[in-house]
Structure formats: C-alpha cells, structure tokens
Write a protein that binds this DNA or RNA. Structure first.
Lengths: 346, 346
DNA sequence: TAGGTTGTGCGAAACGTTTCGACTACCGTA
DNA sequence: TACGGTAGTCGAAACGTTTCGCACAACCTA
C-alpha cells in the first residue's frame, strides 16, 4: 500500500506538499499539482483512514445503534439500516452496525471512548430514552430515527403520525365509511414508552374526531389469536364499525380469519387497513391489503444525513417528519348499503 | 479522552510500561501493574482504536458487502447482517455495512485500500462471483455467506441444500405423498448464476429420486400472478401431484389463490411447503404454511466467526453447510384417499 | 534601492499507540 | 571476585497523516 511518502518521492516534492495538493488545503502550483496527481495515480495511492483520523480527529465513521435481536427485526428496521448506510456512503462516510445488549449505556460509553466513531445514530428510540440523555450529557453528536417525548434541539427523523392518520381516515371517509376502529400495537411487546404505539393511537383518535366520523379503539392484539378475539369483541360491542385499521401484522392475520369465519368478505363487509407495515408484507395477504407503508429507507437516509450535517457545521436542529405512504390494495371499498348480518353463518 | 501518556504520568511509569501492563505483552512487576491498572481505571482510560490500528496494522473492523437495495431486502438478509454483527461483537470486532453499487470491484478496491478493514464478508455470492476472484487475487482475507461454484479453499457458510431437500421430501413422503412438484425462484429476478436457485433445484430433484417419489419441476414463478398460472399449468399436466414446494413468497400467494379458486383447500387437497422463507413470513398466511426456514442468523454468525479465525491464525479452510429448519405449519397433511376432482367448482 | 507582499514549497511536530534495543539491578555460579 | 543471565523498566522510533511556522524567490510600491 503506497503512502504519502512514496508519492512525494516519486513526484520529487515534500510530503506536506503532496498532502496540500491532494486535499486542496493550500495553494499548490499547477505544474506541481499535476505531477503529484500523476504520481499518486500511477502508484494507486489511497489515503490511510486511520492515520488521517488519528490526526484530524474525524474518522467519518458513524455507528448505528439498535437493541439486539429482540425477536428479530422487520423489514422497516432493515430499511433504516440500508437507508442510513446508503446516505452515509454518498456523503463519504461509513456506517458501523452496533447491536446493544444488557447495558446500552455502558456499551455506548465504551463505543464512544474508542475514538472510532464521530457520531451515533439511534434506532428504536423510546419516549424516555436513556441513551439520548447520555449522549447529550457526554456531548457526543447523534441523531435519532424516531424521537423522545421531548426532543428539544436533538436532530431526528420520524414518522409523521398525524399526517398518516389523516390520510388513513380520509381514505376510509372518502369511501363512505362512518365508523372506524383502530387496533394498536400490543401493550405487551412494546411497553408504554414505545413512541409509535402512543403517537399513532393519539393521532388516529384526533384525525377521526376532526373528520367527524365515529372511532373505536382500546384493543391491542399482538398475535393472530388475539386479533381474532379482538375483532369478535369489537363486532359485539360495535357492530356498526365498517372500517378497521390494524398496526400489528399478526393481529391482521387473526382479523382476516375472524372475518372469514363469519362468512364475511374483505372488502365487501369490512375495509381493512394495515398501518406501519411494509407493502411487501401486505402483498402476502389475500386480498392484498391497503397499507400505510412507513418510509423506512427515507428515515434512515435522513437520520444519517442530518447527523453528518451536524458533524460538519452546526446549523439549527433538523427535525423531520415523514408520513407513511398509502398503498391502496384490494381490502378497502365502500361499505355495504344493505346490512351484512344476513350473511353470517348459521 | 485520557491517553496512555496520562495513565503513565499518573502511575509514575513510562508509556511503554503501561502498554505492556495493559496488554500483557511483556512481564511487569505485580505492584507496578496494580498501580497502572488503578490509574487507568481512575482516568477511565480507553485505548484509541485508530492509533492502535495504525501501528499494529489490525483494526478489528470487518466489512459486510451487499449489493445495494436491489428491490429491498428480505428478513433473511437482515439476519445475515445482525448475526454477523453479533458474532463480530462477541469476538471483539466491529462490522461495517457496505452497500455496493454499479462497480463492485472498483468499490472493493477502494474500501480495502483505505486500510480501514481487516477483512471482508461477502453476501449474495454468485456462482461465478467476481468479487471473490478479486479478493483472492488481492490477498484480502474474506469469507462468504453463500458460495461460488468452486470455492476451493475459501471460507464459507451456506445453506445445506441437500439436507434441506432431503428433509422436505422426507416430510411429505412420511405423510404419504407420492408426487411432489417444485417451483423454483424466478429465472428473471435471479439470473442463472444465483446459487440458491440452482442448488435447490438440483437437490430437490435428487432427494425425490432417492426417496423414490415422483417429481415435477421446471416452473419458475416470481409473482403471485405467475404463481397462479404455474399452478394451473401444473395441475393440467400433472393432476396427480399432491404436494408442492415453492421458493418464492409471492408465487405462494398466487398458488394459494389458485387453490381456493378451484374450491380446494389446503392442506386437504394440496400440501404446500414454503422453501427458504422465514417463519415470520409463513405466519402471514392462512393456514400457516409449513416452512423450510433458512438459518440466516446462524450463517451470519458463522461467516463472521470464520473470517475472524482466518485473521487470527490460519488453520485449514472452514466450509460450513447448515440445513434449513423445518417448521411444521398447517399446510401439510396426508393426501386425500378419495379423489379431489369432485370438489372442483362448476 | 529598500521594504513589503504574494506565491510556493519545505521541515518538523503532533495524533496515540506498539515494538524493540538498551540499561540497571540483582541473583546464582564458577 | 568477576561474569553471564534475567526480571523489570525506559526511551526512541515507527505507523501515515495533517498542520503550521518558516524560508525563499519574484514582484510590486514608494
């Protein structure tokens, strides 16, 4: 691996001149510069990132922190990572994949102490995230995918739950539905502090209210079986509900089974929306579900970009909200004008 | 950030003594060692990875290379990454996420020239992978998740297609099926050089032959629509087939629709196996599909581990094959004893 | 012609490690 | 008593950069 010295030797100049020529940090005579560039090209010179980082205190490496394999990740989390890696690459940075374990804070202290990374990208941020608090206190630059309850001036990119809920409600309202129900994420899997569950719940209620349509929530099924039960209970208590938005993939499976068990059909007897799930997952269902697809790649990209911005110069905090994309499937349609009770099985 | 010098000062010894004490590379008197360790602890000293790497030529950083967002990744690819990151971490290494673009070789040359990574982990390896050839020629240590046609002495971890096919065939044979069909990956999406498609195809044929049961292949549906068509054609040409193994998730959706359109039911009229798909995906189906789940995390871990082994000392090449796990769902059952034609819709 | 300004280039220090030859006690042995 | 060996420690060089003060020439201005 040729070094700056080899290039300097070949171009017959001092090492510092080569550095200046290649980085443009100082004026170098045109002829000299050309000679240096040629020598560098001939030798196939690549600057050594370690040496550069050691000297300049900037490694151009970012770490993506995520809680280790809870129960395996979904497609959206994968998109955070690939999106962030992509954006980092485009901006001349590298992305380190850092799983967290038992003691996130201690590991964070360790990671940042190594001098290896310039900044940190936080995934799966809780409403009261101790990592964010630590990093702020430690003065380590970071940005979040998701956000804490009160982000202050921390950079973040998150889902625009308000807009997403508005879009979803507008979609069903435009079809003529007057009664919407919402199944949130299971309270078990994601403790109370999980932002998406809390925010989506609030925003769907608000959007329904604003649109003047009936709204039912309170169910939090986390599995197919719970989804079935929840749907049965829902129909018992609110038989007039004709549209349902579900956040959990597995719960949706149960809902579909329960609908079929009644002899009902989707979308004729129920309009079903899958919220915060990838369109690729929605395609697995039959009929293909209408989905509010989270902008995973986009959020990953934004998170990385704003962190890099922060590392370069410091402007005002960047806080971006991106709505989910509504992908219309075959599970939404106008409600029946005639009642559906008659179709129920014996 | 305290440096070795700060520790040396506080412990009243030379820098080199601190280094020796902390790394155990040279004998240090017990008392001195204790003093040094205490000073290091009090200062919260962390060795600077850049400086260490610059000097020792070992950064303990691995790069995971993957073709950039073809059409987005699946769960299995995510597991490769998290598994590798996990294993790297456990062995004191870091994992860099490196998306590849237009010119993988040029990017590889660049990445390895930076002196940032000790070795490379290749994902999505083709039967004739130019990256593998380049790395071998360049003398860069690497390992593969997947394998080339002729891996020679390159370390790799891949799916044991032979065992997987054997298990699948044994599963349906034990249920009493005598005619099995196999839908491979679409030839379009994965060109002819895609290992899993080629190997799975060969091994299913071999396993069926060895088990002495009828076998039909040749279909390569890559979407739901193609899955429907393929199933229709299959039934037309081979009405006696009672078990079907499908490799593509979307094709499976089409098959299920086609089965339902005939008025048939799964598993009564058809035993359906999903090959190389995660159990989480299988749960999205109704009924829940029997799956041959690829050991994504395991392969990721193995890939990282064998690369690190290679970096440390060089033993013989490690080449590991791991079979898929058969997760029995509700889509497999004994074939009907009475014909199913009668059930066909008018 | 003296003094300042600009345009180029050089050399040395510094970043935080690891490594290795050299030095000092001290001990055992001849 | 002199001599080789060893355990413990030190100092300096090296890894490949960036940065910065300084030197030298050429040119312009007064």
């Amino acid at each position: 691996m040729p070094s700056l010295r080899d290039v300097a030797e070949r171009a017959q100049v001092a090492i510092s001149t080569v550095s200046a020529a290649l980085n443009g940090t100082r004026p170098v005579a045109a002829g000299t510069k050309r000679r240096i560039e040629q020598a560098a090209a001939e030798l196939g010179y690549r600057p050594n990132l370690l040496a550069r980082g050691l000297q300049s205190k900037r490694t151009r490496i970012l770490a993506l922190l995520y809680p280790a394999p809870r129960s395996g990740f979904g497609l959206t989390e994968m998109q955070f990572a690939t999106g962030a890696a992509e954006a980092a690459r485009e901006l001349g940075h590298h992305l380190l994949l850092s799983p967290e374990h038992a003691d996130p804070i201690e590991e964070l202290r360790h990671l940042t102490g190594l001098g290896l990374v310039d900044g940190v990208l936080l995934m799966e941020v809780g409403l009261d995230d101790e990592r964010a608090a630590f990093l702020t206190a430690a003065g380590v630059p970071f940005s979040m995918i998701g956000r804490t309850r009160d982000p202050g001036s921390i950079d973040y990119a998150d889902i625009d739950f308000a807009a997403t809920a508005r879009d979803a409600v507008a979609h069903v309202a435009a079809l003529g539905h007057r009664e919407l129900a919402f199944f949130n994420l299971s309270s078990g899997a994601y403790a109370d502090g999980y932002g998406p569950a809390v925010r989506a719940g609030e925003e769907f209620a608000a959007a329904a209210r604003a649109a003047g349509i009936g709204y039912v929530d309170g169910h939090r099924p986390g599995s197919a079986e719970e989804g079935r039960e929840a749907f049965e209970r829902l129909m018992e208590a609110h038989p007039d509900v004709t549209a349902l938005a579900v956040m959990d993939d597995h719960a949706a499976v149960g809902v579909i089974a329960a609908v079929a068990a009644r002899g009902w059909r989707i979308p004729d007897d129920l309009t079903l929306l899958l919220v915060l799930s990838s369109a690729r997952v929605a395609e697995m269902f039959h009929p293909r579900l209408t989905t509010l697809e989270p902008p995973g790649t986009e959020l990953g990209r934004l998170g990385a970009r704003m962190l890099i911005d922060r590392l370069c110069g410091d402007g005002p905090p960047q806080q971006r909200l991106v709505p989910c994309r509504l992908v219309a499937g075959d599970s939404s349609a106008p409600p029946r004008t005639t009642g559906r009770e008659g179709r129920r099985r014996a």
